[in-house]
Design a protein around this nucleic acid. Structure first.
Lengths: 262, 262
DNA sequence: CGATCTGTTGACTGTTATCAACTCCGGTGG
DNA sequence: CCACCGGAGTTGATAACAGTCAACAGATCG
């Protein structure tokens, strides 16, 4: 892990949502941090705990997981480049557990650094505020999913969102990405039972929309998956348009299947 | 509507979540605004529209309503004193419709005013940031509801949240408040069908937890309602503890009912 | 006084949870 | 090398919950 790695992750992420000058990027190079490694299911921050630093995710996935509900609802998932606990700058107490999905590497960055660069550069202050607003927009979007769509659509939508957010930071270029999630994690995120999650995955496989084997997911029919999920990426505030799906889609978007199976 | 009314609403709300000095409050007195009146179901802001002002809610209720889902999922509800579209300061495009529930009165405040006072007072900038963070925390909480609780619990939780937020700004002192919501609105917020919402309300009435008649709701058993909803108000960041429920609760929290009805 | 919106009820259907059993896999220790 | 173990994935049967459809009642308003 080179010294510049953490800087690059944050700079790329901020640049993907806001226009930053050379001077702004220079400020980021001075970022102090320490590296932390975590195993699957480990908590980086417990509900009720207070933080004086933020976690910049470098490798793997993190999620916020509610502790009050019996099923442990997951409210959001983060990919490398994200700062899941940015809101602790404003309100230091965590309302849920920040948990590792799979093994993760993070850079711990002191709150003071963010306060400093925000006061030195309005553009950076705006970009940080925008991160929080995008987080809220994702929550709203996810809320619409849980409230108004069936479980197949929810799961498909989650895969769409993760794929696109990974691609936005240069990962998952070929619609393939590591997936250390358990089916129970997926169920907790989508508000369904683990058993049902399993059956949904099988449906997605049967429809040839994606494969999930040996801790890796490959989206094999992106147009079909986005159509099924009614996925509209506007809420992610991505600045670049997305490259087309490589394979000519084999009559995608038709949802009709063999109708009966005795 | 006196001139100072809009100022008071905003000042009280900010003071309820953050410590503000006399100087800070003085800044707020200079707030420029125009008054707007809206009828039930009218949109203040349409999805995709851009705003150069924020809406300070003075009377009635507002909600964000998603337009993409068939049922029109409501993602959050606002009470007087709230500024539902504060995030348009950071990202001017709305992702959903801002809709009036019942008749409402709002004060339109230019974005520039918020930018100005935030740059003049760090305390105010912090309070405004905190409003956004609390909004996100409410979204997370509501997400846990939709994802992990059954419809009775969801509806009960919504009434708990509205009651407490009204009380926090001095309304609903006696656990009674105007309710211009239709049962379809309630259903759209809780992610259930209107027919089912109707049956849930009847259950709540039968359990003597609340009454809802002639566009007004009275919570008749606050301990029972909060227990049923597993309601924990911490996420609202209220600074004062809450006064006790007036009536000695008549054996609340027992959920057993007449078991069969032939 | 009809038109429309809201609330109410019953019958039926469909989705999803729950429970239980079993398989598969990767480790770990005898 | 094999037996064992725990976690994860898979399957089938059943039950609970919530959606849909259809009809009607009540209010409100021009």
């Amino acid at each position: 892990m080179q010294t510049g790695f953490a800087y690059t992750k944050l700079a790329n992420h901020l640049a993907s949502i806001a226009e930053l000058s050379e001077t702004d990027l220079d400020l980021l190079t001075k970022m102090p941090f320490t590296i932390g490694h975590f195993s699957p299911h480990e908590n980086l921050l417990r509900s009720g705990g207070r933080a004086d630093h933020c976690c910049l995710l470098l490798q793997g996935y993190l999620c916020w997981q509610d502790t009050t509900s019996s099923m442990g609802q997951i409210t959001s998932v983060y990919v490398p480049g994200d700062v899941p606990d940015l809101q602790t700058l404003t309100s230091p107490a965590a309302g849920a557990n920040l948990r590792a999905l799979g093994t993760v590497v993070v850079a711990f960055v002191p709150h003071d650094f963010f306060h400093d660069i925000a006061s030195l550069s309005p553009a950076i202050a705006g970009a940080l505020a925008l991160l929080n607003v995008i987080d809220a927009a994702s929550l709203r979007h996810w809320l619409v999913n849980l409230g108004s769509r069936d479980s197949l659509t929810r799961v498909a939508h989650l895969f769409c969102e993760i794929t696109l957010r990974l691609r936005a930071v240069g990962l998952a270029r070929d619609y393939q990405f590591p997936s250390p999630f358990t089916q129970s994690d997926l169920a907790a995120a989508c508000g369904i039972s683990p058993v049902h999650a399993n059956r949904i995955i099988q449906t997605l496989r049967r429809k040839d929309l994606l494969q999930w084997q040996s801790k890796s997911v490959t989206v094999t029919d992106w147009p079909g998956l986005t159509h099924l999920a009614r996925f509209n990426p506007d809420y992610l505030h991505l600045r670049q348009p997305l490259p087309a799906f490589p394979r000519p889609s084999p009559r995608a978007t038709m949802e009709v299947e063999a109708p009966a199976q005795p």
